[in-house]
Design a protein around this nucleic acid. Structure first.
Length: 213
DNA sequence: GACCAGGCACATC
DNA sequence: GATGTGCATGGT
């Protein structure tokens, strides 16, 4: 018998403790980080964010005022810098055009509406959209990433090829819609993944979820 | 030197 | 609808 998502959460929390996500100073920084961390180690994102801070450009209008070339140069350590510069530009245009760059105005929009809007921005997929909703805007949305799929499919909770919404549904169906819970849960999954579930280095013998439940 | 990381869009079948 | 590929740096 497999453990419920809540039991698994408690087990992870006991094992790793609070993760204090998202490691950023404010909501806008979370949004930028969410785009920069796409398929990229967080340590590299930190360097890119430090560059933006140093350039005093970590604010919607200032960031948007940078040329694509200069922006790409600043975020270079995060990898995929040309693509990510373009994605940031698209996102900034969205935030400035629709919300005048106001995080507060964004946060009062119903999450379903906002999610649809975010997904319509080029470069914002489901994980990035949900990360922004949860970690920047405090909406109770469960974030699914590669680790989530890998870990829980390896443990037999769903098929390895399961789609994003399917995996998300597995967690949201059985958990209380709670921002703090979703925040901590996803962060714990990432921590577990980094420690025990790398792509080609299965260390499942030591994995805390080994005996399920 | 190979492999991997807190994805996504686009082409092709 | 599923599957493959390009995008790129920096740590292990």
């Amino acid at each position: 018998m497999k453990g419920s998502p809540l039991k698994l959460y408690k087990k992870l929390y006991r094992c790793f403790g609070p993760q204090h996500w998202w490691p950023a100073k404010n909501a806008f920084e979370v949004m930028v980080g969410a785009i920069l961390t796409q398929n990229t180690a967080w340590a590299n994102v930190e360097k890119a964010i430090a560059n933006l801070k140093k350039a005093k450009a970590l604010e919607a209008r200032k960031l948007n005022a940078l040329s694509s070339k200069r922006l790409a140069r600043l975020i270079r350590p995060a990898g995929y810098y040309n693509i990510k510069a373009a994605r940031l530009k698209c996102y900034l245009r969205f935030v400035l055009d629709i919300y005048g760059g106001s995080v507060r105005r964004m946060s009062i929009v119903p999450e379903v509406t906002l999610r649809r809007q975010l997904l319509s921005v080029k470069g914002i997929g489901p994980e990035t959209a949900d990360s922004i909703l949860l970690y920047a805007l405090n909406k109770p949305v469960f974030v699914v990433d590669a680790y989530t799929k890998r870990i829980f499919s390896r443990h037999g909770y769903f098929d390895e090829g399961a789609g994003y919404e399917e995996v998300q549904g597995f967690f949201t169906r059985k958990l209380k819609k709670d921002v703090k819970l979703f925040n901590e849960y996803h962060a714990l999954i990432v921590e577990l993944g980094k420690s025990f579930c790398r792509k080609n280095k299965p260390r499942c013998s030591e994995c805390p979820l080994k005996d399920d439940k």
